[in-house]
């Protein structure tokens, strides 16, 4: 690896300061959580930071704390602890399940929630160092190339899919992200955090230079809500989602009062399906409705040359997940 310095951050302000100091010296800085993504990028010469600002040394940023009408989750919590956390498992099941599907125990033991949400794309062109949008170039090689795993929604000019499992769950949970940066703090809805390539083809989110994702605030789901994460992988584990679905159903006996349905693996951001959510609200979840919802979910999909299979696959995932979740006691 190229040489770089590791700077341990004392707190968030200090972290931002360390990054800014580096920049003022004409050096580049990256925040690092578990490092499970960043180090691979440095080894491949895709990222070239001179300073790694280590966030793991910040105390207290790895906790789940009850907050007004919900929980606040520190961005530095490991995916392992998150996925085993009692309260999260019970009330925010979709998040625990999503975290549990990430990679392997070894990665979950170091990988952080913030790092998972901010990980770079796993498009094989990007990871192999092609001069694509994500690598500072001005083309997307997947378009007209090998795009089996690329976007069927929201693509263009880049067609990556967002790689994070927890991101999909967090959008479904209507979480808010607390961001700390050089100009202070801001809190934005998860859905506004992720950015389509039309907005900025080089990045996947709205973080500005030296801004860090500090915390995730999740409102408590309403009574009667159940949620789940269903992930399709190319082998039984250790790969990103080919397609995934995060679903929350607020149920009143047999009737669905409200729903949140978000897809992963299909778009450059977690892909919310408002039309499906509306279709489900106030209805009994029957086989017919599930099938209709699945059809509606894929309306407007624009598959590329080699990923048309994602259309029937996603339909299947939506239909089944819906039926399974509705049937859960």
């Amino acid at each position: 690896m190229k040489p770089f310095a590791n700077s341990n951050a004392r707190d968030l302000q200090n972290a931002v300061q360390l990054a800014q100091n580096a920049r003022q010296d004409g050096r580049t800085a990256s925040f690092v959580g578990g490092g499970s993504d960043l180090l691979a990028l440095v080894k491949e010469r895709i990222a070239a930071p001179d300073v790694l600002v280590n966030l793991k040394t910040i105390k207290g940023l790895d906790q789940v704390k009850p907050a007004n009408e919900g929980v606040s989750i520190g961005g530095l919590i490991t995916l392992d602890i998150l996925s085993r956390h009692d309260l999260i498992r019970r009330q925010y099941t979709v998040l625990a399940e999503a975290a549990e599907t990430v990679a392997t125990p070894q990665i979950r033991n170091v990988g952080t929630l913030a790092g998972n949400v901010c990980q770079r794309p796993w498009c094989w062109y990007f990871r192999n160092g092609f001069p694509c949008y994500k690598n500072g170039g001005n083309t997307c090689f997947s378009f007209g190339g090998e795009n089996q795993f690329h976007a069927i929604f929201g693509g263009g000019p880049s067609y990556i899919v967002h790689p994070s499992d927890t991101a999909v769950a967090l959008v479904a949970l209507d979480a808010k992200f607390r961001i700390v940066g050089p100009s202070g703090e801001r809190v934005i809805p998860a859905a506004d955090f992720f950015a389509l390539p039309q907005q900025n083809p080089a990045r996947e989110n709205v973080l500005a230079a030296d801004e860090a994702l500090a915390e995730v605030q999740v409102p408590a789901p309403r009574a009667g809500t159940r949620s789940t994460y269903h992930k399709i992988m190319d082998r039984e584990a250790w790969t990103h989602a080919v397609v995934s679905a995060a679903m929350m159903l607020e149920m009143d006996k047999q009737v669905c009062r409200s729903a949140r349905v978000v897809l992963g693996g299909v778009a450059p951001i977690p892909w919310r399906l408002p039309q499906v959510e509306q279709m489900l609200a106030g209805q009994r979840i029957t086989d017919t409705l599930a099938a209709k919802a699945a059809e509606a979910a894929l309306e407007g999909a624009k598959p590329l040359a080699k990923n048309a299979y994602k259309v029937p696959l996603t339909k299947g995932v939506v239909r089944r997940t819906l039926l399974e979740l509705a049937a859960r006691g």
């Binding site: 190319d234 082998r235 039984e236 584990a237």
Partner: peptide, 8 residues
């Protein structure tokens, strides 16, 4: 290469 894992 998607090699087989313990789970596969």
């Amino acid at each position: 290469a998607r090699l087989m894992t313990h789970r596969d």
